[in-house]
Design a protein around this nucleic acid. Structure first.
Lengths: 134, 134
DNA sequence: CCGTATCCTCCTCGATACTG
DNA sequence: CAGTATCGAGGAGGATACGG
């Protein structure tokens, strides 16, 4: 009888892996970019600062909760700045930081690959779905 | 009284947006790459074909369900091939397709940015968390 | 105008058990 | 060895209502 069962060993491995993941830079970046709204907010800001309500209008379909949550996250990560003007009513502007701007070429690269190759993916998908038996 | 309430207009916008999203190539790619296991499987395959059990061992912590699900998805998208050898017991090999290989530089680019800038992000995060009142 | 707080609903993912 | 089937917990995200 072993000191650990197979399940215990797997669980152990999973936890070690999660810990490894929490420390993996690429993973962190992917997690950020993969968020549904992050890239949209970033691209909405690439031409200059935008007001909160402006962003809400440009990114149609986003809920207040998600927009605020996304902006807070990006601000926390140092990718965007939040500038509050204490007029009445209040006015808040968001803008990309240099760090945020340095991320944009990456987004373009992704966009580029997708545009060049997505048709191949679609095609492969159709072929795969068309042949249930093989 | 308007023909549509604000809520209805938002819902309408959300649906239109979801439809737009379903057609957005960059989005599709990001959704694929953002998956927890996808990049791991891809990098595990970059040095050549691997057997199913080999992948399961190399990618510690992955469940059978997730590994199979990930591989199926990648196969469907034409990024990996699945080769079944009908010996006893069965043997199955997975490998990157040319399309899958063309994606690897992108993964490297992400890795590169992350390694160069993740420290800045961490730093920004610490600063943000340290100052609750500003 | 710019949020925060609460509730509630999918939907993903892991665990487990079984098959060719 | 290489999967499939089923179930249940947990989190992400939307709707709604309220606050500075």
């Amino acid at each position: 009888m072993a000191t650990r069962t197979a399940a215990e060993r797997r669980e152990e491995a999973r936890q070690a892996f999660d810990a490894y993941f929490a420390e993996c830079p690429s993973r962190k970046l992917l997690d950020r970019l993969s968020d549904k709204w992050v890239t949209l907010v970033l691209t909405a800001l690439e031409d200059g600062p935008r007001r909160y309500s402006d962003l809400a209008r440009r990114i149609a379909g986003v809920s207040q909760k998600m927009l605020t949550q996304t902006l807070r996250g990006l601000e926390r990560d140092g990718l965007v700045t939040r500038t509050l003007t204490p007029s009445v009513p209040v006015r808040v502007d968001y803008a990309l930081t240099p760090l945020g701007e340095s991320l944009m070429p990456l987004v373009s690269a992704i966009k580029g690959w997708a545009e060049r190759h997505i048709e191949d993916v679609e095609e492969a998908r159709r072929r795969y779905d068309a042949c249930p038996g093989a």
